[in-house]
Design a protein around this nucleic acid. Structure first.
Length: 273
DNA sequence: CGGTGGACCTGCTGGC
DNA sequence: TGCCAGCAGGTCCACC
């Protein structure tokens, strides 16, 4: 569910709420996430003060005093929400963090595809899930020449390449499809067939689309909520994703859907070649 | 190494 | 109304 814009929205909405707070207590009610939650999670978090909240790809990093970082991934259906402690607990509230101001931070994830672990700052580089992440789309390293070099040597479909976290950290199926619409390229196109100009267009549109989605606080179909449990609004501005049969905003052709691997790709048959 | 398909989960929707 | 298949924003692994 949550791709870069959604994770960034969660981080921004939590940042001011969490900074400076002390973690009073951590209750793990369900350890069976994508990876089992360590029995030492509570011990490593309790008593520490939160310094900052940051993001890497689709991972949320909460830095704590004492050189510890609490890393969360929301999988497909996860939420990390800051709520009043009096609010009733819900099914699938797997981790409850009690804060010094009387609020709780709740990790909620029906499908349990997420992750939650604590490491030292120095160990972030060696966390298996993080160490192969590619450049952030807002980083200068995500340049036209970088992307062209990656595209030209791959026989994969361009949509598959763009959602590979080694290529661009944080891009997922929604935004890969949206970027390709703006670039005028079909998601099914083999990457090596694209030229420098097309690589440049993709490299330029990627941060623009993501920035626009962040401005609208992410895409909420059913699950996604920000750190205060509010929906995003970008679902109303999608050009192709989940719009099969609807008219293209540019040319009114019907948007098409194709299955690529196990997941859907969407495109305008007229605007995307 | 690259590509494909399935597995991990729950919940919602649409067709019959 | 009820049941069931299909599908969902992510990631990893086995297999060819």
């Amino acid at each position: 569910m949550p791709e870069l814009p959604e994770v960034e929205t969660v981080c921004r909405s939590l940042r001011a709420r969490l900074r400076g707070q002390k973690i009073a207590r951590v209750e793990v009610r369900e350890r069976r996430l994508r990876y089992p939650v360590s029995r030492q999670l509570s011990f490593r978090l309790e008593g520490r003060t939160i310094l900052e909240v940051r993001r890497r790809g689709k991972y949320i990093l909460v830095a704590l005093e004492g050189d510890q970082v609490w890393i969360s991934h929301l999988g497909m259906s996860g939420k990390l929400i800051y709520v009043d402690a009096s609010r009733p607990r819900e099914n699938h509230d797997h981790i409850i963090v009690t804060l010094s101001d009387g609020h709780e931070l709740r990790y909620h994830d029906p499908r349990r595809f997420g992750l939650s672990l604590v490491v030292s700052e120095a160990a972030i580089r060696s966390v298996p899930q993080l160490k192969h992440l590619g450049p952030e789309p807002f980083d200068p390293a995500f340049s036209a020449s970088y992307l062209y070099a990656v595209l030209r040597k791959s026989r994969r479909r361009v949509r598959d390449l763009l959602i590979d976290q080694k290529v661009a950290a944080g891009l997922g199926n929604i935004y890969a499809n949206e970027v390709l619409f703006h670039a005028g390229i079909r998601p099914t196109t083999r990457a090596w067939r694209l030229g420098k100009r097309q690589a440049t267009t993709i490299a330029e549109f990627t941060p623009l689309v993501l920035e626009e989605a962040i401005r609208r606080r992410g895409t909420s179909f059913s699950d996604f909520r920000d750190g205060e449990d509010r929906k995003g609004r970008f679902q109303n501005h999608l050009r192709v994703y989940d719009r099969e049969g609807e008219p293209c905003a540019n040319c009114s052709s019907k948007i098409k859907r194709v299955a690529l691997g196990n997941r859907s790709a969407f495109y305008c048959p007229t605007c995307q070649v």
